[in-house]
Amino acid sequence: MILELFMTACVLLGGFFAFVAGLGVLRLPDVLIRMHATTKAGTLASGLIMLAVAAGFGDAPTVARAVAIVIFLLITAPVGAHMIGRAAFRSGVALWPPTKIDPEARMKLGVRDD
């Protein structure tokens, strides 16, 4: 009973955060802020769903796979967001007007201003 409640809560919360991550990509103002939504909320969403799977099955092979999936996500999601953000910043994609850019950032990275 308690296990089922726990699993339900995890799956629902995971679905909620996955939805928020997707909606964030749709409605946040620029590419870098969108990356915030996909990395943080997306990782938490998959982590919660994997937690529910591991708790529900409870046998060693499933738990091991769930742990492996979460570890791979924790490594790859930020790297993917980092590469997209880096490419956007270096190629000079227009950012949301209120963004304040440290003038040193472009200079230190050797990116030209345009």
Partner: peptide
């Protein structure tokens, strides 16, 4: 990248 408010760019 995974903690509040910050995303590493480069």
């Amino acid at each position: 990248s995974l903690t509040p408010g910050t995303l590493s760019l480069d």
